[in-house]
């Protein structure tokens, strides 16, 4: 009786053979019907991308340009299709963003172009594509990755948006600071039913959840940094815009609360080792608005200090905060019209837009820095649960 001895890894060449008629089954099982949760938790990050690339390598090895083309088209169209269907699910979008990037990195790492081979092992160099130059397809994949990134940002924004005003402005964690409520102000009724239930802690927990999902999916660290920067921009912009529209948010004690909240966000960045991703800098307008609520606003010296401090705020924003500023106790007073005029005169020569509100829809341009993998393709096993028994390891 023949003994079914498993082949040794060194005997494999890191390719997966498939029949042309199985291509649809491949993208169906691997992309359209895959449940990201199970895959992300149990298997190596980027496994679908590696499997697709190993199939592509086999088509390249056969020198079958039609097979290469149709596999790439089916892959890209399937990813677009799943994102159309589940585009509002952060996990799905994050999963396909990281896999699309990994697929793109593989196309570079194994392209045979020296610039992308610097970190390859000799064995990895043997696995470079041998017949086709897929540079144009890399461009298409990069365009796809940009689309998925924008979808991820929208998805994240939809989840975060309802928490921001409540967690950053309304909810008070510093006990006894505000003391007396500003006189003559009604408590603003909430437009979102459960708005009042969100706290800064809800925001921090949500940020951690986004972060842990992306890490689990093996998202490139450089890409995570860009997502976090965008998250912080949205938090800062939405908070500042609401502050600029609400008198009850423009008091000394709110300034204190905002500064505390910002320090907690910074602490979160430090905890995740993300201090250098540019996220903190996006909060600068909000930080300055909070400081503006707290500094003295009386003398010419105060005016000078404010003008040099608030360089991330527009004149319209500075003047608005000063106009809205509302004392909450007898030790504070309203800002005089004369003082506001002094500020306006001092800032007259600033070249800037008359913009009051920040544009919360801005998305920073994304880049996908090349991130080669040390994983040996020949060592990759295909778990039975993926239902890809029709692929043969070569």
């Amino acid at each position: 009786r023949p003994v079914n001895l498993p082949r040794k890894e060194k005997d494999f060449q890191g390719m997966l053979e498939y029949k042309k008629e199985d291509e649809l089954k491949l993208v169906k099982n691997l992309i359209l019907e895959l449940k990201p949760r199970g895959v992300a938790v149990n298997f190596i990050p980027g496994l679908p991308a590696y499997i697709l690339f190993m199939c592509l390598r086999h088509a390249d090895y056969l020198n079958d340009d039609q097979k290469v083309r149709t596999l790439l088209t089916s892959t890209i169209n399937s990813i677009k299709k799943i994102l159309k269907k589940r585009g509002d699910d952060f996990e799905t979008v994050s999963f396909w963003l990281s896999n699309t990037c990994r697929f793109l990195h593989c196309l570079k790492q194994y392209s045979g172009e020296e610039a992308f081979m610097k970190h390859n092992t000799p064995r990895q160099n043997e696995h470079c594509l041998s017949n086709f130059d897929l540079a144009e397809y890399r461009q298409v994949l990069s365009d796809l990755a940009i689309q998925i990134y924008q979808q991820l940002i929208k998805c994240m924004e939809n989840i975060l948006q309802p928490m921001i005003v409540s967690g950053m402005l309304e909810h008070e964690t510093i006990q006894g600071v505000s003391g007396v409520k500003p006189t003559g102000l009604r408590k603003r009724t909430s437009s979102i039913a459960d708005e009042g239930t969100y706290t800064l802690d809800s925001i921090l927990r949500q940020l951690s959840s986004f972060h842990s999902i992306m890490c689990q999916h093996g998202t490139d660290p450089e890409l995570i940094k860009q997502v976090v920067k965008q998250q912080f921009y949205i938090i800062g912009a939405v908070t500042l815009n609401n502050l600029l529209l609400r008198k009850d948010m423009c008091s000394w004690s709110k300034g204190m609360q905002i500064r505390y909240n910002v320090s907690q966000l910074e602490e979160w960045l430090r905890d995740k080792n993300l201090m250098n991703c540019g996220a903190k800098e996006t909060l600068e307008p909000l930080i300055q608005a909070a400081q503006l609520l707290q500094v003295k606003k009386k003398t010419d010296e105060d005016a000078e200090a404010i003008c040099s401090m608030c360089n991330a705020l527009t004149t319209a924003q500075i003047v608005k905060v000063l106009n809205l500023y509302t004392p909450v106790n007898e030790f504070e007073e309203r800002v005089s019209i004369m003082f506001i005029r002094t500020i306006q005169t001092r800032l007259r020569d600033r070249k800037e837009s008359p913009q009051l509100l920040m544009d919360t829809k801005i998305i920073y341009p994304v880049t996908f820095p090349f991130n080669p993998s040390s994983l040996a393709l020949e060592s990759i096993h295909i778990p039975g649960s993926l239902n890809l028994g029709f692929l043969t390891r070569v």
Binding site: M117, N125, C128, S130, F132, A135, Q139, D143
Partner: peptide, 30 residues
């Protein structure tokens, strides 16, 4: 080591053009 033979550049359609080649057409039609 990269092979000495030059690779053949595969011309790619754009992302939008690719969508036209809907591989799922048959499956989706009633």
């Amino acid at each position: 080591r990269p092979p000495s033979r030059p690779r053949v550049l595969l011309k790619a359609p754009t992302l939008a053009e690719m969508e036209e080649m809907n591989i799922f057409e048959e499956e989706e039609s009633p």
